[in-house]
Design a protein around this nucleic acid. Structure first.
Length: 114
DNA sequence: CGAGTGACCGCAA
DNA sequence: ATTGCGGCCACTC
């Protein structure tokens, strides 16, 4: 409906902005919810040139590892996540299985269904 | 307007 | 198990 310009970027930003504190989402997830499961790279691109007010720090890769290119490097990224309440491993890895969050209504199979 | 790149993911050997 | 390569879409210069 209505305008659909760059709905991808708007969608990703909307999802990231909805990520609750202490939770993390994967790029592939955001990409899939945005409309393209193969556009995970674009999500990263938007993250770098998107709105700096969005909690991109809560966005990690499928491995649960922190991404590069973040202002301050993984060091700053790790500290920010820990400040949010996310436990980051010494290797800059987070428990995706524990902190992975899905938007309400779009969850294909929550962890409870495991 | 055209080309290149990217904070990724999945599969193949 | 590990390593290497390709692919898709959007954004920037």
């Amino acid at each position: 409906m209505e305008s659909v310009d760059t709905n991808f970027r708007q969608r990703v930003e909307a999802l990231v902005a909805q990520i609750p504190q202490g939770r993390v989402m994967t790029y592939g997830q955001l990409a899939a919810l945005a409309g393209s499961a193969y556009a995970a790279r674009i999500v990263g691109g938007i993250a770098h040139f998107g709105d700096p007010d969005l909690p991109w720090q809560r966005v990690v890769n499928k491995q649960g590892g922190l991404a590069s290119g973040y202002p301050g490097g993984r060091d700053g990224h790790k500290q920010v996540l820990e400040a949010e309440g996310v436990s980051v491993s010494d290797d800059y890895y987070v428990s995706v299985s524990e902190l992975l969050w899905w938007p309400p209504g779009d969850e294909p199979a929550q962890q409870g269904l495991l």
